[in-house]
Simulated scan of single mutants.
Amino acid sequence: MPFNTALTRKLGIRIPVVQGGMQWVGYAEMAAAVSNAGGLGIITALTQPSPEDLRKEIQRCRSMTSNPFAVNLTLLPAMVPPDYGAYAKVVLDEGIRIVETAGNSPGPIIKQLKEATPPCVILHKCTSIRHAMSAVKLGVDFLSIDGFECAGHVGETDITNFILLSRARQTMPVPFIASGGFADGQGLAAALSLGAEGINMGTRFMATVEAPIHQNIKQSIVDAQETDTELVLRRWKNTSRLFKNKVTEQAVKIEKESTTGKFEEVGPLVSGKRGRQVFLNGDPDYGVWTAGQVIGLIHDIPTCEDLLARIETEAIDTLSKASSLIVDEQPPADIAGKKIGEKSDPRDEGTSIAKSKL
């Protein structure tokens, strides 16, 4: 039973679930598996060392699925920033017309993507309403509203999705999807009820058969509690939610106790290269890696097909149950008890005993 939301209509997908653009996870096999299962798979551009490598990855993904998939372009501060324009050109040259953007100053890239023929459909990820409104002015088609529960960059406003999504519903002139804290069909139903057109899942897709990461890391997610994440780099206003391990504990200790406040003191611990090795060697304590609070809701490692089928069924069932709560006539209360004065009332029994003693 397909969904009918602005997201499914625009993108041509069956289930309104988007796979997050995860660094070192968003490879072709991940994206293809999600797209084949009815959602929107995403290749993460910067997992590829060059624009030409991205071209090969897009072509590899196309060989594995005939369904729509997207590419993520995240713009982050760097001493030597990647050639984002060249990556975007490859996206356009390869005929990709769905792009997830995120990060700082996306205006030039969004302009480049929108000037294509036909123009790209752009999903832009934001952690605050203020940033979302700025993205609307740039011409994005969908906003991906990223709550404080999410993995990775959480922003600095600490607003959770229950409030953030309602604020988006009240203020956003373009459709939006919900990101951060989603792992099941009940979450999808809740997001739709709050005004979203679908959901974005990252951590949940890491714990799937097709996720191109070590089995030990998938099992670490399954075994974790919702309390097993850590906020790191808050001191430098680059707050990231990471899986709590020995390295994040060291990083947080330095962050809190450093008298100089120099990023160089913590830099080697939060190195992305070191974090990438975690997914390859399977040691969850080797480096830092992103995970959302949703890890507390993840209890298995299914295929993407089984996961999305389950989410679809759960969401439909949840929405149907919610609809059944609306009735034509209010039913009588079932906790009214018996009227005062009836013999079975303990207070009356006490009164009778008292009278018998008079």
Rank of each mutant, 00 (worst) to 15 (best):
R130H: 08
A45E: 02
E226P: 00
A189V: 11
K10M: 09
S240R: 14
H131W: 08
T208N: 05
R60S: 13
P268H: 08
G181L: 03
I177D: 05
E305Y: 02
G350I: 13
V266E: 01
I301K: 11
K253N: 11
A291H: 03
V266Y: 01
R347K: 13
L280A: 13
G41H: 12
Q277M: 14
P284I: 10
L188S: 12
S66C: 07
I13L: 02
E115W: 00
S63N: 12
D53G: 03
T65N: 06
K137P: 00
T44W: 03
V222K: 05
Q186H: 15
E329I: 07
A28T: 08
L76P: 00
N36W: 02
A28M: 07
M172L: 15
G292R: 06
I145C: 08
V80R: 12
T318G: 00
S166R: 15
K355H: 11
A151Y: 04
T229V: 14
D146G: 04
K253Q: 14
S344C: 13
Q277Y: 09
Q250S: 12
R130S: 08
E29T: 13
Q170D: 15
V222W: 02
A132H: 01
H214W: 02
R310L: 10
I298M: 05
A151G: 15
G20T: 05
